[in-house]
Amino acid sequence: MGITIKDVAKQAGVAASTVSRVISNNPRISEATKKRVRKAMKDLGYHPNIHARSLANKSTQAIGVVLPSSDKALQNPFFPEVLRGISGIAHEQDYSIYISTGITEEEIYEGVKRMVHGNRVDGVVLLYSRVNDRLHDYLIENNFPFVVIGKPYHQIDAITHIDNDNITAAKTITNYLIDLGHERIGFIGGDRDLVVTLDRMQGYHLALEEANLPVKEEYHIHEEFLKSGGQEAVHKLMSLTEPPTGVVIVDDLMAFGVITMLDEFGLKVPDDISIVSFNNIYLSQLTMPPLTTVDIHIYELGVQATKCLIEKVKNKLEPAKRIIVPYTIIERNSAVDKK
């Protein structure tokens, strides 16, 4: 016969009901008692029947994670890192993770509908925010718990979201190039349908305008958040009669593509062109030269998103909130003084 809750209770010197409360992570149980019960569970080799508990609680003990496109998103180190933050909290709280596998927007939308109507998850984390995203409307209409990593385009006060102050961060990193004496500054962003691109582009514009520098449409390039996207952007910028001397890039993986393609053009960073970027992924330290970048603390975005979602799952009346994760400018060697 297998180990039961009663066996654990006897080993830990508590009531069986206390063991059940520890398994469900009841906040009313002291940390000392939780540690004693968990030690007894480990010593006895007891594993809770999550499926049975989920049925009793009318809960799946799972959260859905929605990527912008499953075939390309995981090529960018941002997403594995934010998933690491999500999985850490999910593990602590005994939740499993159900990752969307859609490639097109329609597939993603249908996948979320299956999550909701199939009772596959208790709530959803959206890892991106698009302009006029019908996923937001659908989840709100169905009163289904969800949080967004990024800033919602509409109903910002009604949707819990975890974000950086991307406008200020982009303005700050653009000013970094301006302070180095750069006057011709380009911008390489992702899809204009992504709110993060719009916010960072707005910050870039604000910095140029305050410095009385021209905002040139031909200096705006939009590609996918991939190495290939950065490479394509270089082709476009370097074909200009007067290319920029500095570039703000909204993603480190794109910046890696920029550096490799500039090298093919016979141009060196930062001697011929200075670049600054966002995210501070591991690649940013491995490029030649290492990137000056904005550390947006990706792991913490995942942590905070999961904590907020589990709060909403446990209490659907939990009010919407906005959590801003601070950013840090990491200075390395990809930009030089042009004065």
Rank of each mutant, 00 (worst) to 15 (best):
G13M: 09
Q231E: 14
N279P: 00
G88M: 14
V258M: 10
A207E: 06
V19T: 03
I329M: 13
H182M: 10
I185W: 03
L206T: 12
R114C: 09
S17I: 06
L180N: 10
F278I: 08
N143W: 01
V112W: 06
T33W: 01
K321D: 08
L237C: 10
A9N: 07
G88W: 13
I310D: 07
S129Y: 06
H182A: 10
K10M: 06
L253P: 05
I173H: 09
L309C: 03
T60N: 06
L67H: 05
N280H: 01
L208E: 00
E232I: 10
Q93W: 02
L177G: 08
T104W: 12
L291D: 08
R184I: 04
K339P: 00
G13C: 10
S334G: 13
R332V: 02
K42R: 05
K42D: 05
H235V: 14
L262T: 06
V131G: 00
L213D: 07
A15W: 11
I149R: 02
V116S: 05
P326H: 08
I86T: 07
G2M: 10
E105Q: 02
T101C: 09
N57R: 15
G266S: 03
L262H: 07
G230E: 05
L213K: 01
H117M: 11
R36T: 02
L180G: 09
L283I: 15
P68R: 06
N76C: 07
V325T: 04
V124Q: 09
T18L: 05
H222K: 03
R28W: 03
A52W: 07
L262Q: 09
R130M: 09
Y176C: 07
G302S: 12
R53G: 12
P77F: 11
Y219G: 09
L291V: 08
A158Y: 04
V313M: 01
S17P: 06
V148H: 08
V22F: 08
A158P: 00
P290V: 08
L286F: 14
E218L: 03
V82N: 03
Q155S: 13
I86A: 11
K268H: 15
E242C: 10
T328M: 08
Q285A: 14
A15P: 00
G64D: 01
F144E: 15
D199Q: 15
F78C: 03
D122I: 04
I159H: 04
A32R: 14
P244M: 00
S17K: 00
D251C: 14
A56L: 14
Q285C: 03
R134M: 12
H91T: 15
M1K: 12
A16W: 13
G118K: 01
V195M: 11
F79Y: 15
I281C: 10
S228G: 08
A305M: 11
I99M: 13
H297C: 02
S87V: 12
I221L: 07
F78L: 00
A170S: 13
I50M: 13
N175I: 00
I140R: 14
N175M: 00
